[in-house]
Every structure is written in C-alpha cells, then in structure tokens.
Nucleic acid binder design. Sequence first.
RNA 1: GCCGAUGUGGCGAAAUGGUAAACGCAGCAGACUUAAAAUCUGCCGGAGAGCAAUCUCCUUGCCGGUUCGAGUCCGGCCAUCGGCACCA
Length: 856
Amino acid sequence: MSSDQRRPFPFDEFEPKWQDQWEGAQAFRTPNPGDADFDASKPKYYVLDMFPYPSGQGLHVGHPEGYTATDIIGRFKKMSGFNVLHPMGWDAFGLPAEQYAIKTGQHPRKTTEKNIEGFRGQLKRLGFAYDWSREVNTTDPGYFKWTQWIFLKLYNSYVDEVTGKARPVSELEAKGMSREEIDARRLAYVSEAPVNWCPELGTVLANEEVVDGKSEVGGFPVERRPMRQWMLRITAYAQRLIDELDGLDWPESIRLLQRNWIGRSEGAHVTFKIAEFEREVMVFTTRPDTLFGATYMVLAPEHSLVSEITTAEQRGAVEVYQRTVMSKSDLERTELAKEKSGVFTGAYAINPVNGERIPIWIADYVLMGYGTGAIMAVPGHDERDFEFAELFKLPIKQVVQPPEGVKWQGFTDDGVAVNSGFLDGLTTAEAKVKMAAWLEEKGLGRGTVNYKLRDWLFSRQRYWGEPFPIVWEDGSHRAVADSELPVVPPEMEDFKPTGTPEPPLSKATDWVRYSETARRELNTMPQWAGSCWYYLRYCDAANTERFVSEEAERYWMGGGKPGGVDLYVGGTEHAVLHLLYARFWHKVLFDLGFVSTPEPFQRLVNQGLIMGEDGQKMSKSRGNVVNPDDVVAEYGADSLRLYEMFMGPLEQVKPWSMKGVEGVHRFLARVWRVVMEQDQAGEWVVSSQLQDVAPEKKLTKVLHETIKKCGEDIEKLSFNTAISQMMILTNALTQSEVRPASVVGIFLRVLSPFAPHVAEELNALLRGVFPEKAAAGFVADSVWPVFDPAALVEDEVEIVFQVNGKLRDKAVVPVGAAKEEVEKIALASARVQEFMEGKPVKKIIVVPGKLVNVVV
RNA sequence: GCCGAUGUGGCGAAAUGGUAAACGCAGCAGACUUAAAAUCUGCCGGAGAGCAAUCUCCUUGCCGGUUCGAGUCCGGCCAUCGGCACCA
C-alpha cells in the first residue's frame, strides 16, 4: 500500500532517508565557542520553541505550527550565514505527568521516559533541524541540579532597596543583621499566609494557576487556607517587570496582559485612628482626594485587628461571618457573590481630615491580600462602596462634582472637589496631589504605589518535582551545600498525594532524615521551575561544572539587545505564567552577574490556535481532533509543514482543512513533476524538459521575485505569502516547455527551509544530471540565493488611467517615461476623454510607473 | 464592566494610501481516457445591458470624515473571539 503507484511522489521513501542522512552527518549540530569547528566570524541567531510537556497523547497539530515556523527561520538563517542555535527539550516534571502515572499505575519516570521517546520520534519524523545533542530534560538530575542551584541563589539573595537589584544575603550578614531580619528579606522565603489549596489535586497552587476559583489543571475547586509554604519574592521586581518590557519586540497584547497582571496603581496610604483604642489602621486608596467623603471603613474579615476591636454585642455576628467567609472557596467568594455582605464590628475610626467618627465593618469584598486589607469607603464615588452603603443604609456623601447632567451618586470619574474643605474647587488630579502632601506633612500618610501581583507560591505537595535543597533543624531552614546537589527524590512505591497538606515525600522516612537532628524539606518545586531557565541550559547543555559556561552564555545570549534569545515562538497561554516567571529568574541571575542581558527573550511571537474542521476548539469529546501522525502517513512531513504554514498568518486563529492539506500536497507533487517524469516502465526519471539553457527573461524575473519575496517574508514570519510566491514560480515552470536546470536548482534552495525533504531529494536527483546546477552537499548546507535587482526591472509597465479616482483605461508605457509624456497619453485616451465629459481639467496626479489620475 | 484582537468571494486568505479578491480550496467546463481517478487548460463576488467580444453600476461589518484617490488613515457605532474582573 505504501508504494502504491497512485502516490503522486514517493515521499514515504525519501523523507525517512533524508532524516537518517541528516542525523548521520550531524547536519544540524551547532558548534559552541571553543569547539574546533566553531566559526567566530559568523553572527549568531538563537531561535527557540516553547519546549513541550511530553504528554501521553503525543503531538497535536498545534505543536508543528510553531515548530515549523522556527524551523524555517532557523534553516533560512543558517543558509544566510548565521550560527544558528535551534534546540529542543522536555518540560517533564509536573502535575499531569504524575496524575498520568498514578492513573496507569506506573512510576512517573517510566511514563515520562516513554512519552519523551514518543515525542522525540514524532518530531524527528517532521524533519526539524534541531541540534539534538543539546536536548534537555527538566527531570534529569544533571539538569535539575542547576534548577536547585538557582533556587539557592534566590534563597541566598535579597533586593537592595536603593539600587533595586538582587544582592547576596552575605552582605546583610556582614552588616550584622539577625537571622530573622535576613530571612524576612530573602527572595525565597517561608510564609504562613493563606494559600490556594486544592483538595482534589492534593496540593497548593500559585495565583496564576487558579482560574475562576478553580485549578487550571483539572478544573477542581480551590480553597484558601493558611499553610507554611515557600514563596518567591517576585513582587520585588514588579516595577522592573513592567518597565523593562519596553525594550522588547513582543506583541502589544502580551505586554498589556503582563502589565495588567502586575497591576500597578498609584495612590496613598492613610492612617486612621480607632476610637476608644490606642490603635491605628492603615488603608490604601487610589483616591485620596475623596477622603472627606469616607463615611465608613471596611476591613477584610481576616484582618488581624478585627478580633481586637469588635465590641461584645457584635462579637457573635462577626465570628459567624468570619467563619462563613473562611469556608468559602474563591469561586464562591468572587464569581458567585453578586450580593454584597458584611457585618458591623461595633468599633469606630476617626477620619483624619474632619475628625468624624465612622463605623468599621468587615466584608469579604475587601481582600486581605491587596493593599493593607483595609479600605476607607467612599460610597459617593465608588461603585462597590455605593452598593454596600445602599444595602446597609450607610451615609453617602458627595465630594466630587461631575460634569453637567451627570448624577453624582456613584460617579467615579474625575471631576471637581466639593464639600472637601481645603480641596474645594480643585480638579481630581490636583486634589490627589494636595491631599497626599497634606497627609505627609501631618504624618498621617503618604503617596504610594501598589501592585496586584502577589509573591509566587513556590511549593507543591507532590512527588514528581524538584526537591528543595533545604533542610530544617531546630525550626529553622538552611541550604544544603552546593556539593550535595542534586538533591534527588527518593525511590518510592507509593508516591500518591496523602490527601492532606502533608507532602508525599513525608512517607520516605529514610530520605527525610538528613541527620540526627535535621530533616529535609518535604515540598517540591512547581512545574514552572524547570522552564524558568531551560533556554540558558541549551547554550551549554552538557556542562557539569556550571549551569552554563560564561563563554557560551555570552555568545548565544549576548548581542547588545535587552533580550538574549533572538526569536521565541509559542502559545499565548503562558503570557502571565512561564513568561513572567522566566523574566523574574533571569533578572535575578542578571543582577547577580550570572547572565549578560536583563531580559531572556528579545522577540516573542505567539502562534494562533488551530481549530477543528468545524471551527470549534479541537477536543476528544467533539471528535474533531486531527492527529499529525495520520497526516504524515498519508501526505508526508513536508505537506504537513507546508500546510500549517499556508493556512494563514502564523499569529491568527484558524480552522483545519484536510482539503487544504491536499492542496499543498498537490503543489509539492507539481514541484516533483517539474523535475521528474515517469518513463515507459513507470519509473521516476529526471524530466527531459529539464535542460541546461539560459532562462527567458520572464522566467528569470519570476525566479528573482521569488528569491526576494521568500527571503523578506521569512523575516516577517509571513510564510503563507512566501508559499504563494513559490506556487506562482512552480506554475510558471510547469507551463514552460523547456525548464532551465539553473532555475530549478535555485528554486530548490528557496523551497528547502519549508519542505526540506523534497528539496534534498530533488536536488540530489538534479545533481545526477546537472552537477553544476545543484547544491553539492545537503541543500540545507547550501547558501541562500541572492536576487538580482536588475532581473526584476521590466522594460515596460502598465499605467492605470483614472478620472476622478475611478479606473477608466490602461496603457503600457516604457519604464521611466517622462511625467509629461505619460500625462499626454492619458489625456489622449478616448475613454479618459469620454469620462471627462468635456469638463476642464482641475488637476492631474501622476504616480510614476503606477497611474495617472485626471481630476475634473 | 474594563482591556485587547478580528470583521474582505461559497471557504482559507492577499493587497508600501494608488487596478480589491494574488495564491489555494470547493465548484463549473474542456483536453487526455473505453470509463473513472490522476494530470493539464480555461472560467469562477453581485446586479444590469449586449448575439458577441465587451461595457456600466455596486461591493472589504455599519455610519460619518480626511484625501485627487480609503480595505488601508481619523471619529463614532455594531458583531465575534480572547484575557482580566469586588485590586479600593
């Protein structure tokens, strides 16, 4: 069946053949600085794919979309004289791997190895020009040794307030700071705060992993509960993570996503005294100008002051409310809670601007994790406060005058201050400044900046992850020595979650016992840890002495731009997860002098999702999933690659079409038949139409247009239009009686980044008959052709004649004809005369080589 | 609610402010064939006029503006998709 005569060209024979030859010749091995065959005179180009999580399902058609795009770029850059780094690896730790292992009753190492083998085989079958000698696997002890090492860099660093840069904590020790003070400043620290606990998954999750109150993986409910967890102080980098986006070539949408996630807002801290108590409470507000309108205060139910200030009469109600809130999941507390709720504490605060006593309430619409967990409520000019005040009949006061005809109740935009003492008459912007100054002067508050971004919850109660290189003794933690890395997880028969917050590693009692008095940390790192730095490891994947050698890092990640990787292609789903985490780690390593750029990824491109043939998202339940293996078996790897690039713009969401695959497959068959024909016996032989002749001018022009357009379009990642142009050239060749071998030879080089197998095969066959006209070795090693601008110039051009902007006539004139000359021809045109209707000419616009527009 | 992206033939799409629909899919017709498939060639947005070649008008989600000229630039609206969402 596979050698069926009907197959329009024998891709199933030559595709695996060339894959073997590339591998045998190590055609895509990239030498590193210091290697004997390294050519330092060439510029570098680092093109990176988001490495896959090797699931049991195998590749889906979304993977080859981005991978083909980077492969085309990488092959093109190689042919254009660059040292190209284009590696691949496996993001293999994490929840899904462990769940799959539990489900199939195998050890995750076994299933992971099997899945990786499957993925690697599938990728090789697509002919990607990866340097497989640099393959990385996040679950390999040789790899995660360095993940743990970087964690210890975080653990042993703090952010200097003056410079905003990470420094070793040894500097704090030198200053004589206490152990507690130092622990409170580490970039990796232990916290007891309430965290996202997912009972179903048996682990805690980061904020970024919780969507609508449910776990991103599996969609299980998530609750808040206080637990002792490792946190990474990403908030210390909030401002730099916003500011340093500016130097990057990233899609504006992704930069906005990150900015919004970090959520900077400017405002002020204001201190309120609590009546009858020697206590104060600080609130954060973005509207200090409305302080005169604060008629009550709300604390988060978890706020530490609540129990202290609640009066005896209110205590019962307050405690009931606190318990209800505690038991609610995030989903219930946000998504489902349309109605405001809350309880009066019985206590009062003093508004510092006017001395008014305002009641203190607790309500779950105030979140403990943002600002200070306490707000001044200005119901006149805040929607939420307004709704709450209406419900509980609290006073609502106007302090901002809206524009004419707009109701002031609930008006939240900028206006003019009223009923606000010394602020009256000022615009909102002016009033904010004046109030902040007033507060500062009186020692009651000051202007401040707040971020929505929270610190990164970094520990998981799972088996299949990097163990922390930390031990505990006498209630305090310390790092293990670098020489003890990697800390390898223990061999365990039973690695299932315990169903409680107790991590599964607790069951490995021998492993846990570090010494007579010390115990190992039982948590593991989240999946994101390994992907935070894998792009660095590729630069020097086999190094056992260092996470990456200085020389290799400088060469591949350097280059004078803020970001080191020249092009990074992947899905948009990592916008606030991996892409934020990796930037954070990279900045820490940069501050500490371990990497040479402040940002990891210079140019980022998100490929669009591929939908099913029905226009719906591909899913097993819908039955619209396309398996790339089936496509490769029926049409070949080149057809799959080419189709995915021809579907439409890379970044766009687009539906699959099997008919479309057949279309590009037919195109490749046409290319094949440009070079080959069948003899009497039905064997493929080089076509007799191929001849060693000089091409006609017209064909030469199409060829050079193709070289030019394909080169430019590859740089722009506009692969669909590049392929269109190759189709135009192929159609021209098909229609020529005589096909110049030189044209075909050059065309195969242009085609090769897109459809490398058929290009290699045809080049080898061409070489057999016209050795001078074909690339000598692999086409993949040949040089990208240079187009001749002279070949693009025509003797004559068609000029369009318009009357009042409407097309009326055309004429062919010599290139470079004088303006006056062309004008004369246009006016002489009978059709132009007809549409001028004898009216006088007001103006004539001549665009050289394009058109004449007569305005009457 | 806020933010972002996208709206062009039957479909995927293409068009530095200058001939809208390149290229492909589907469809139609012809050639080859006993026949079919494959292949090759031609046609292929809508309305109208003409026997015909051909010609006229309309057409890039909707309304308006700038311009000699707008799918493209500006303003307003509508729809679809994606993200965020009690963040004070």
